[in-house]
């Protein structure tokens, strides 16, 4: 592990000021991903600015009925928070589907959004990886990729500096994407709020960048807007073992059911793309239509029509289609 200086600030602005002068520095939250990446030699900061006790550990009510989640709220506490369990079941379920009890106790809400892909080529410094070492190529497209992306990836061949088929590993972020959360960020120029849709980015021509955050910007809170019909919501996850594994495919969905009609719906997918994938094609087809299994299948198939799988991850297309369908059927049958 590279040597680093350990710094603490007295407030978030102080932390931002500290990191602004450290181009190779990083913030330390719970450290459950960063410390591991440092040990692997994937992350090599020369300064760590500890922010775990700087940002809020509170969940506050917003005037519109939504919630403001402090960036330092541990994943476990957020999942246990009664207002989250009552208002946003899909968010509580997504958090509980992620990691282990030990990791959820330590990992923070802000850090969860910024965790890096678990693509094995990214975490192995002996392998080519455009995300870890821009321009080195992608080992995964012709290698082990059954767990990697089928939507929104860049594949110009193993040698291209653009190619990246990594997936975003977070469960929580998938639920927050369905809920249209926004991320409050403090930078050298002050505070701004970013819709979560604009936080994570597709690999495009620069796979090294996971998010649109500038160096030194600090997540201070996540705002979840009110969505009264999110009481009819759930998060489902399929993985290689029953617990404590990353998603092959996951679905976060909420439904506003009026009689037999889907008045409104939110669907986001995990495990299929470089970002938490909002299924807007499916949502548009479903909105105002009948809440029938046939309609759900058609919408899911339309969403996955854009998928571009590789030899070993094409199974994710029927898996995602079936999971979207099954989740929507369950929501339509559920008591609100």
């Amino acid at each position: 592990m590279r040597e680093f200086r350990y710094e603490k600030a007295t407030d978030p602005a102080g932390a931002v000021a500290l990191l602004a002068g450290e181009p190779e520095g990083a913030y330390l939250g719970g450290g459950t991903n960063l410390v591991d990446l440092m040990r692997l030699g994937v992350a090599t900061p020369d300064v760590l600015v500890d922010v775990r006790q700087l940002t809020s550990t509170e969940v506050e009510d917003l005037p519109d009925g939504g919630l403001r989640i402090g960036a330092a709220v541990p994943n476990a506490d957020l999942a246990g928070e009664r207002r989250v369990r009552e208002r946003y079941p899909l968010l509580a379920q997504a958090l509980l589907a992620g990691a282990s009890g030990q990791l959820r106790n330590r990992a923070t809400t802000g850090g969860n959004l910024l965790q890096r892909t678990r693509c094995t080529y990214f975490t192995d410094t002996t392998m080519p990886c455009n995300k870890r070492e821009p321009g080195s190529g992608c080992g995964a497209v012709n290698g082990y990729h059954r767990n990697l992306a089928v939507l929104g990836a860049t594949n110009e061949g193993a040698d291209s500096s653009h190619t990246c088929i990594a997936t975003h590993p977070s469960d929580m972020a998938v639920a927050l994407r369905a809920l249209d959360a926004s991320v409050r960020v403090l930078g050298a120029d002050g505070e701004r709020s970013i819709p979560i849709a604009e936080l994570h980015r597709l690999p495009g021509d620069d796979p090294s960048r996971d998010t649109t955050l500038a160096h030194g910007e600090l997540i201070t809170a996540i705002d979840v807007p009110a969505l009264p019909w999110a009481t009819r919501s759930r998060y489902r996850k399929v993985r290689d073992r029953a617990s404590y594994a990353f998603a092959l495919v996951s679905v976060a969905a909420a439904m506003d059911l009026q009689g037999d009609v889907v008045a409104d719906v939110r669907i986001a997918l995990g495990g299929v793309a470089h970002v938490p994938w909002r299924a807007t094609v499916a949502e548009d087809l479903l909105r105002g239509g009948p809440a029938t299994e046939a309609a759900f299948v058609a919408a899911a198939e339309a969403e996955l029509a854009a998928a571009d799988p590789l030899s070993d991850n094409a199974f994710k297309i029927p898996m995602a289609t079936n999971m979207v369908t099954r989740t929507l059927v369950q929501l339509a049958e559920a008591r609100a």
């Binding site: 350990y6 330390l28 450290g31 459950t32 410390v35 591991d36 760590l48 009890g101 030990q102 990791l103 106790n105 330590r106």
Partner: peptide, 8 residues
Amino acid sequence: RVNSCLVL
């Protein structure tokens, strides 16, 4: 409970 290997 936490994993002490990931705590600096």
